[in-house]
Simulated scan of single mutants.
Amino acid sequence: MGVGSRGCDTARAEPRMAVALAAELRTESGSTSCRLVDLSRGGACLEIDSPVLRGREIVLHRGAMQAKGVVVWLRGGRCGVRFDKPIRATDLLVQISQSRKSQPRAVSGGANSLSPSS
Results as ranks from 00 to 15, higher is better:
70 V>H: 06
21 L>V: 05
92 L>F: 04
115 S>W: 08
117 S>P: 00
86 P>T: 10
103 Q>Y: 05
97 S>Q: 13
37 V>D: 03
52 V>Q: 02
50 S>Y: 02
91 D>T: 02
67 A>W: 02
112 N>R: 15
118 S>C: 09
32 T>F: 04
42 G>H: 01
77 G>N: 10
48 I>L: 09
30 G>A: 11
37 V>T: 08
69 G>P: 02
39 L>I: 07
115 S>A: 14
90 T>L: 11
21 L>C: 09
51 P>A: 08
117 S>C: 09
78 R>V: 00
89 A>K: 04
61 H>I: 02
108 S>N: 12
49 D>V: 00
36 L>Y: 03
27 T>I: 01
105 R>K: 15
51 P>Q: 04
66 Q>R: 11
47 E>C: 02
13 A>L: 11
77 G>V: 10
22 A>R: 01
44 A>Y: 00
31 S>K: 10
77 G>C: 11
86 P>I: 03
17 M>N: 14
107 V>F: 11
64 A>V: 13
13 A>G: 13
11 A>I: 01
39 L>Y: 04
21 L>S: 13
93 L>W: 07
8 C>H: 08
84 D>S: 11
62 R>K: 12
109 G>Y: 12
61 H>T: 07
23 A>H: 01
78 R>S: 03
92 L>Q: 10
40 S>F: 00
103 Q>G: 12
74 L>N: 11
14 E>P: 00
27 T>Y: 02
97 S>E: 14
91 D>E: 13
2 G>W: 03
29 S>L: 07
94 V>R: 12
80 G>T: 09
2 G>D: 08
87 I>Y: 03
23 A>G: 13
1 M>T: 07
51 P>R: 01
111 A>E: 12
1 M>C: 10
118 S>H: 09
18 A>P: 05
2 G>M: 09
71 V>L: 09
56 R>V: 08
14 E>M: 08
79 C>K: 00
7 G>S: 10
96 I>F: 12
10 T>N: 11
51 P>T: 05
38 D>V: 04
48 I>D: 04
77 G>R: 00
86 P>N: 15
46 L>M: 06
110 G>R: 12
41 R>N: 08
14 E>D: 12
89 A>W: 01
83 F>Q: 06
114 L>Q: 12
43 G>F: 03
16 R>G: 07
15 P>R: 04
74 L>I: 14
54 R>N: 08
63 G>R: 04
4 G>P: 09
9 D>A: 10
90 T>Q: 14
46 L>Q: 04
60 L>H: 00
82 R>G: 09
32 T>A: 15
67 A>H: 05
69 G>R: 02
95 Q>D: 13
97 S>A: 14
113 S>D: 11
15 P>L: 07
58 I>Y: 04
27 T>N: 05
9 D>Q: 12
83 F>H: 03
30 G>H: 07
9 D>I: 03
95 Q>A: 14
40 S>N: 08
74 L>E: 10
68 K>T: 05
107 V>L: 14
52 V>G: 03
103 Q>M: 13
34 C>G: 09
45 C>V: 07
55 G>W: 03
45 C>N: 03
90 T>S: 15
100 R>P: 01
104 P>L: 14
69 G>M: 02
4 G>Y: 03
89 A>N: 09
94 V>W: 01
71 V>D: 05
105 R>W: 00
